[in-house]
Amino acid sequence: MADTPDATAAQGGPAGEAPLRGRIAKILNTSAVDGPGNRAVIFLQGCSFDCAYCHNPETRPAITAKPGLRPDGKEAWPRWMTSGQVLSSVGRYRAFLRGITVTGGECGEQPEFLQELLRDARAAGLPGLVDTNGSLDYEAWPGIVAAAEGFMLDLKAWDTDEHRALTGAGNASVLKNLDFLAASGALYELRTVIAPGLFDAEATVRNASEALARAGSKARYKLIRFRPQGVRAAWRSLPPPDDALMERLSALAADSGAAEVVVV
């Protein structure tokens, strides 16, 4: 995790008006794996899903109280920050960045802040990708869609019951977002974590690829091997998928109409 300098000017915003603040889990100043090129990654705190294989379980709970200080006197993460503070924190490394990626937790849990951050970042010359679980209805947030460079959408499972079993939440909004973002051209990448036994991966991959094709989307479909490192203890014994399965799913996605398939 990156340790960024403590932001100063903590009380940004016009006098008298409470500045909008986001709950920030952490900030990475550089990343090769969160979209094209080198990007700073802003992790927003809080997620309403409860995925079995979540790799960032510490970013799930929403924080409400003002977080405390660490023993060394620095403010601990997560923090409340304005979008200006987030951008000034990555500003020192501006020369290296192609853009930012806003993720979580779930960034759609804080839509006003997400919108403001994307707008301010764009104004500063840093286009922002939104990495989301699709729980927020983006059609209802045209400001976010307009400000974003694109979306990376997680599709955990196609079947609603499977989705509920896997995440504790239904997927009507996710599927709606898939159609909407794919059709509008805002979808940069669709992703599914392949965890054998937790859901019907073949049905999910096939249906999702067909949906991409129907919408005429050129988004790439990334199939991600489940990896036990970092997940909660109860799920660590879950076996990662073998190469044969990943290859089969990759071929299935291509056959079903995905424009580009990547396996990681």
Partner: peptide, 23 residues
Amino acid sequence: AFEPTAKANPRQLLDIAKGALAS
């Protein structure tokens, strides 16, 4: 030295190299 995963995203290395020279 870069993580082997960087190979999937050579533009990241380019961004860093460009930023380095610009700095």
